[in-house]
Write a protein that binds this DNA or RNA. Structure first.
Length: 478
RNA sequence: GGGCCCAUCGUCCAGCGGCCUAGGACAUCACCCUUUCAAGGUGAAGACCGGAGUUCGAGUCUCCGUGGGCCUACCA
């Protein structure tokens, strides 16, 4: 309910600071929608729309519809319906209702008939190129004002065969070429993953969106600025049909550096073996971020902080990482991981005890204990060892101080000594390959405790946060 | 070519005519702390795209310029 405000205050500010969002102008219940095309799972770019719509649903105790826009049978990925739903749930934005456009074709047909009978649309049989060319010069095609034929009859004929499109009349004179007459329905013979070949007449984006937003009772259309002209087109449908309009709100475009977001390119890359799947850690799909250990809350918070300004913005990975670090740091267990290990024998007169806390500030999280016997082989990072020379002192972290002599480690003492280089080490452990988002891989050995933490986000000391998987550690961020 | 939208520190946000000698977060730099190069503490550096106007007064309003983005599909 939105009944808290006696009068809907236009441009109400105040909202900055808390959730950060300025509440919507409301007059009754709020219905929002997130409307992706099911051509693949969601990526980081989509998550902004999810975050904003979800946040406003929360503020106004409204309803959020997930609308799957699958009116182009040629680009539908049947798996995407479930993947998208799952991604939304992961983000904590489970929709109240899911609608699929291909289930609603008859609704679009009905509204198309109404448009035709009101002379607000026409059936056109012209060549596509020619029609476009005429439009470019603000001139009507012969079909547009052909009163001799029944456009309604021509429309019905399209169901059984033949070519033709249904066009919504707008203003051909408009000096904005993007707004002159637009196609509402066209023939697509390709079989649809959900509908098969039951239908051959499919609505286009602008028409289906206008119909659905109205028919589903959407009160606030919140979407990117790239839809500015689409909104103008869609408003023609509202006017032709005497429909009340929802409130249209546009936020600026986001540019996401170093990220491949184009669904078709990704799926090609998967097919070619460049990526292991939608969750390949090199990608910026939500599946990939989830797999690497990103917390949904970090992503949601990031977008809420960005708000709904109309200025275009650039995503800062660093800032997103910082938001995630805040969430992950208090929970992540610390672990040694020795990259590209070199082997050295430990010389000691008695067994040594390792006591390493899982978290330096949370003793209650326990510690890693290990008894190290004299004579065992210690694994140390090759890069660190390269810095040391014969006779140097070094400290095996949380264990003891050693002197490097004759290719061996000579136990010297146990208490830490100021100024002595501290190295991570392990005796034996889990071979774990570190996989960075740029695709690079480093072999290494993690201490045995890692075996019990599969699936968890942990912090490899001096490396950064990673999420553990079977034989891999997926790099999250520093 | 045409149209639409936008313009404050590196990034994101705040600022809605005087409270701004422009504030915050993250990033950066320095120092402190530290058996992690994480976290934490202290401090520093860092922006109103340009030009006209309106006004007693402009980051805040108007116009022009410049820059950027998007749309101009029988894609979504």
């Amino acid at each position: 309910m939105a009944a808290q405000a006696p009068a809907p205050k236009p441009r109400k500010a105040t909202g900055s600071g808390h959730s950060g969002l300025t509440p919507l102008e409301v007059d009754g219940p709020v219905v929002l929608r997130f409307a992706p095309g099911p051509s693949g799972p969601l990526h980081l770019g989509h998550s902004r729309a999810v975050a904003l719509n979800h946040a406003f649903r929360g503020i106004h105790n409204g309803k959020l519809i997930l609308r799957l826009e699958d009116t182009n049978p040629t680009v539908v990925d049947p798996a995407a319906y479930d993947l998208i739903t799952l991604d939304m749930e992961w983000l904590g934005a489970k929709p109240n209702e899911i609608v699929v456009q291909s289930d609603r074709l008859e609704i679009y047909y009905e509204d198309a008939r109404e448009l035709l009978s009101r002379d607000a649309a026409y059936v056109c049989h012209c060549d596509a190129e020619k029609w476009r060319e005429l439009k470019r010069h603000s001139t009507a095609c012969p079909c547009r004002d052909d009163k001799s034929a029944s456009h309604l009859a021509a429309f019905e004929a399209l169901f059984s065969g033949g070519d033709g499109i249904v066009v919504v009349k707008t203003d051909l004179e408009s000096n904005n070429p993007a707004l002159r007459d637009f196609v509402a329905l066209r023939v697509v013979e390709t079989s649809h993953p959900r509908q098969g070949s039951t239908w051959r007449l499919w609505p286009t984006y602008n028409f289906a969106v206008a119909v659905d937003d109205y028919r589903l009772g959407v009160t606030h259309v919140l979407r990117g600025k790239d839809h500015l002209n689409n909104t103008l087109c869609q408003q023609w449908v509202y006017r032709h049909l005497d429909w009340g309009e929802p409130q249209f709100i546009h936020y600026g475009l986001v540019s996401i550096p170093d990220a491949l977001l184009k669904t078709t390119t990704i799926s090609e890359g998967i097919a070619d073996g460049d990526y292991c799947g939608w969750d390949d850690p090199q990608l910026a799909t939500l599946a990939a971020l989830r797999r690497r250990g990103y917390q949904p809350q970090a992503i949601m918070d990031y977008w809420i902080a960005a708000g709904v300004k109309e200025a275009d913005i650039t995503l800062s990975w660093q800032n997103l990482e910082a938001a995630n670090r805040v969430l992950v740091e208090p929970e992540a267990k610390r672990l040694f991981w020795v990259p590209e290990p070199v082997e050295l024998i430990l010389e000691a007169s008695q067994p040594l005890e390792k006591h390493a806390p899982f978290h330096p500030e949370h003793a209650e999280m326990g510690e890693r204990r290990e008894t190290v016997m004299p004579g065992v082989t210690i694994l140390l990072p090759a890069a660190d060892m390269a810095q040391l020379a014969e006779g140097d002192l070094l400290r095996l972290k949380n264990l003891c101080n050693c002197r490097l002599r004759n290719g061996q480690l000579e136990h010297v003492s146990d208490a830490p000594i100021k100024g002595v280089p501290i190295l991570q080490w392990c005796v034996a452990g889990e071979p774990l390959q570190l996989l960075r988002p740029n695709g690079s891989k480093v072999e290494g050995i993690a201490e045995p405790a890692a075996a019990e933490m599969m699936g968890e986000v942990v912090q490899f000391e001096r490396i950064g946060f990673v999420r553990l998987e079977r034989s891999q550690a997926l790099f999250l961020h520093r």
